[in-house]
Amino acid sequence: MTKEYRGWRWSAHIILGLFALACILPFVLLFTSSVTDSKVIVTEGYTFFPSSLSFAAYDYLWQNSKMIFNAYGITILTTVVGTTASLLMTSMLAYPLSRKDMPGGMVLAFIVFFTLLFNGGLVPTYMVYTQLFDIKNTLLAQIVPWLLMNGFNVLLMRAFFMNSVPKPVLESASIDGAGEFTIYYKIVLQLSLPIMATIGLFQALAYWNDWNNGLVFVTDAGLFNLQNVLNRIMSDIEFLSSNASMGSGSIIAQLPSETFRMAIAVIGILPILIAYPFFQKFFVKGLTIGAVKG
C-alpha cells in the first residue's frame, strides 16, 4: 500500500469521524433529555449530564403500552409489505424507461417527472381514495396513498439502470432468446443491487416515519401506526399547553410534557437502530455483489 493511499484512508477516518460525532452527539442529548427530570430541563436547560433522572415520560408511555405495541405491529407490517411492493413497482417502471430504444420512453419519463411538480393537493387525493376507492380505515390506507411509489425514486433508478447496465449485456441476452421479464429479473436486478438496496432503504424509512396517511385516512385507532399513536399523544399535550386558559386543568396535570417529546423520539428511532445492522449487512452485501458482477 502506497503512502498516498494511507494518507487518504487516514483523512477519510478523521473527516468521517468528526461528521459521525456531529450526528451521534445530538442523539445522545436526545436520549439523556428523555430521562432527565423535567424540572431540571425547565430550570437548567438540556444537558448531557442531568443532575437528576426521571423516567416519568417512559412510565407514561408504558401506561399506553398496549396501544404502542399494536402500533409497532402495524408499522412493521406496512413497512415490510409496502417496501417490497414499492421496490417491485418502481423497478418495473424504471427499467423500461431506461431503455433508450423503447418508443414513447421520453413521453412516459415526462409523465413520471410531471408528478414530482404538480399535485392536486390533500383534499382531492382524499376524495379519490375515499369516494372512488373506499380505502378509509383499512390497512391499505397506511400503504397505498402517496407512499407506494414516487417519481423521484423511479427517475433515480432509471438513471442507475442507464448507467450501470451495459447495453451489450442486454443485447446478447436478447439474442440468446431471453424474454424481457427474464432479462429484467436475471440481469438488470442482479446488476443493480446497490440502487435496489438504496431505494429499499428510502422506502422503508418513509413507511416507518409516516404519520400523514394515518392522520388523513384512518380514524380507527386500531389501525394507527407507531407515528400516529405517538403524534396523537404529543398533540394532546401541545394542544393543552397552548390552550392553558381553557379549563383543562385536571387533564394536563397528568401529562409529562417537557421530556415526553424526547422519549417519543427515542422509542421511534430505537427499533431502526436495532434493525439497522441486520439491514446493513444485506445492504453492504448487496453492494459488493453488485460491484463484483458489474
Binding site: P96, I111, N119, P124, T125, V128, L148
Partner: peptide, 25 residues
C-alpha cells in the same frame, strides 16, 4: 416492446390514481 409496456402498467396505473386523478384539485 409489448412486454416492457406490460411491465410498466402497475407503476403507471398507480401514478394515474395517486397523482393524476387528484389533479382536478
Amino acid at each position: 416492446f409489448i412486454p416492457l409496456y406490460i411491465m410498466m402498467l402497475p407503476g403507471l396505473a398507480y401514478l394515474f390514481i395517486n397523482n393524476y386523478l387528484p389533479m382536478f384539485g
